[in-house]
Design a protein around this nucleic acid. Structure first.
Lengths: 219, 219
DNA sequence: ATTGACTTGCTTGGCGCAAGCAAATAACTT
DNA sequence: AAGTTATTTGCTTGCGCCAAGCAAGTCAAT
């Protein structure tokens, strides 16, 4: 726009990709995916009404691009925060980081989670990308639990799965009530408490509090 | 269809409502909300292409009707199961019931949760209906926790909120991987364990496992 | 006869596709 | 090495298709 009319093909696509991603994220957060049109994405990014469709093939293709792009950056951020910790310290840091991201209220994370939840009803490519992200998160958690001293593999993976579904539930709450940041804080805090409790019990592996195992839900 | 051509107005609408609800649920589960059209709902229910739109006003109206209808029945089922219990027994029963509903794999619950999650990106009426259901669930949980001996109101509501977000996370997992019923069972089981742990600690209100409170995520 | 359940015709708008244009890159010639 | 042509690639525009929603119409219940 300023004074650089000569761009290589790669530069051009990078620029238009980036602009369209930003425009799409803004529109998704503002009005939801349904009322976000490919036309609007192209035009808000400063191009023609047809570019988004041409570039990403379809609306689903655009969404997949966004999930992939934001997801990778988010996982990288998370890795950066947790790389210096091990065991329960890493879990606590991950919770804190997630909480902070929510409190910051960045549009890209919000759009990311919106696409995450909405992918549930479709059998799109988005779904498998998300499944991959979910799995990587779970594996990380299981590793931290091992470091924390949980030697039983079954318990470890069960608690890791529980942890990550709980985080997702919190993300839902954040999207549903974006203004109730206190609730978001409290949920992260409570999750941390219950996780520490579980880890402590699992590693001390004898404790009066766990003396009464509940009935299982499989008949 | 068989041999009852004479029906009152009320009977007619009840019948068409019911048929269209069933058709919509089936279509939503089969192909998702996006690819479920009002035309298909009407025709699959045995009527014209326009009836669904006429009756519910819009696609969002149809979805709201479904959420309301299934949600009410589901809450009633839950109430029936938990009404004979109090305290942690009720919580356990609620978890068991939820788990069993998932294992049964009924289409209506699946469609219900699909609509639940997809409502996140929109500012529709569906969202407020769901908020109401969520709130009722949370209040029930808080009451059970009080019965279980949790006297601190803050802790009680925090744990109730945590519990219900966790259940929602499990519902997501169930929708995402409908075939991995073992995972669903394990998640319910783990949630029950961690809940009991938290309740026991909160009611014994002194325990070595809770001696090291984690840092909060608010700075 | 009037109300209400239901159908049919029509408009609007988004998605996706294919044809077209201009800039960038590759290939060829001298 | 420079200039010219061929080809690819980024991007735009026009059109067909289909779903949503609305209004007018038909037919049965009250």
């Amino acid at each position: 726009m300023t004074a650089a009319p000569r761009r290589s093909h790669a530069e051009r696509t990078d620029l238009s990709d980036s602009r369209m991603r930003d425009a799409a994220i803004r529109l998704i957060v503002e009005r939801g995916t349904d009322r976000t049109t490919l036309k609007d994405v192209g035009e808000h990014a400063g191009y023609s009404r047809g570019l988004a469709g041409y570039r990403f093939g379809s609306k689903a293709g655009l969404f997949e691009f966004i999930v992939r792009s934001v997801g990778e950056r988010w996982l990288a951020d998370l890795k950066r925060v947790t790389s210096t910790r091990t065991g329960f310290g890493a879990i606590g840091a991950a919770i804190d980081a997630h909480c902070q991201f929510c409190l910051d209220g960045a549009d890209d994370l919000r759009a990311f989670y919106i696409l995450w939840f909405e992918s549930i009803g479709v059998q799109s490519e988005v779904k498998s990308v998300i499944a991959g992200i979910h799995e990587r998160r779970r594996d990380d958690t299981a590793r931290w639990l091992l470091e924390a001293g949980m030697n039983d593999a079954n318990d470890r993976h069960a608690l890791a799965a529980h942890f990550n579904t709980a985080v997702l539930g919190i993300a839902y709450q954040w999207l549903a009530m974006p203004d109730d940041l206190d609730a978001v804080k409290r949920l992260h805090h409570t999750l941390k408490l219950t996780m520490q409790l579980s880890v402590n019990v699992a590693t001390a592996d004898v404790s009066s509090v766990a003396a009464t195992p509940p009935r299982n839900c499989d008949e």
